[in-house]
């Protein structure tokens, strides 16, 4: 399986020691290389490079902002909240899928150029913007909403702390597509549901209040469903929320097996 061997990033180069007084933030120079693509100009993608002076508290997103606001306004990327919650700015930074707003520049190797590419496996629209529609199409298919049977309770639907804990990990998903676009199976076969859809199905399958678990398991028992997972763990490594994605997929496999066998 083509799991990418990614060199472990060296530890932080710039140490913000106690001698740094308030307001004093060390600066350093970086080279930012961004994969550019504009179908209105050329069918070929190319790399653009900028030398920037950045601060120890800056993130990759700040470097992209600096480029867009001060150097080249045509650089295109998505970002909404810029604080690791909305999941808009997943991109491939130094060969690894991460959120630009959660990746501090000082944690990367600043002696080498920092490479920023769009996430793989989805059609690139412009620069770092990809078409997320196939991703959301899979997400919609697993019915990511509460489905219940019987009478509606007069008050809230009760759930014990243990029952809530069962699917706690998969509630953290922010739909950034870092996992799905790091999956080598998804790269070659876009029909695969992908880790994100399975994680969000897991969130409802193991919810004690939900009654449509069987329907979701049946959907994921498809030939493009959970059985395409090769447990390469790329998704677990890529997840910016630290969700144990491969574990969640295995639990869904187990659930299908115990229901059928």
């Amino acid at each position: 399986m083509s799991t990418e061997t990614v060199e472990k990033e060296p530890a932080s180069k710039i140490d913000l020691g106690p001698e740094v007084a308030g307001g004093e933030i060390p600066t350093f120079d970086i080279t930012l290389k961004v994969r550019r693509y504009n179908p209105e100009v050329s069918d070929e993608a190319h790399w653009d490079e900028w030398q920037l002076t950045m601060y120890g508290t800056d993130r990759v997103l700040d470097a992209l902002h600096k480029v867009k606001w001060e150097h080249d306004g045509s650089v295109s990327f998505r970002r909404s909240c810029a604080h690791g919650v909305c999941g808009s700015d997943a991109m491939r930074i130094n060969g690894r899928n991460r959120l630009a707003c959660k990746t501090l520049l000082k944690d990367l190797d600043t002696s080498k150029p920092i490479l920023v590419e769009p996430i793989k496996g989805l059609p690139v629209e412009k620069d770092l913007i990809v078409d997320m529609e196939p991703f959301f199409q899979s997400y919609r298919e697993i019915m990511p909403f509460l489905i219940t049977k019987g009478h509606e309770p007069t008050k809230e639907r009760l759930q014990s702390a243990e029952e809530r804990d069962r699917y706690d990990d998969t509630t953290k998903c922010i739909l950034c597509a870092a996992c799905t676009s790091s999956c080598p199976v998804f790269w070659t076969d876009g029909q695969y549901f992908g880790p994100a859809a399975i994680v969000n199905a897991h969130r409802f399958i193991f919810d004690s209040r939900d009654d449509a678990g069987d329907m979701r398991l049946e959907i994921l028992n498809d030939k493009e469903g959970v059985w395409r997972c090769r447990t390469t763990f790329n998704c677990s490594e890529a997840c910016p929320r630290g969700i144990q994605v491969t574990k969640a997929i295995s639990e869904v496999k187990q659930a299908i097996l115990t229901r059928k066998v």
Partner: peptide
């Protein structure tokens, strides 16, 4: 996903 195979073959 054009052809939805709802069999259990892959499982």
């Amino acid at each position: 996903r054009t052809s939805s195979s709802r069999g259990n073959f892959e499982m």
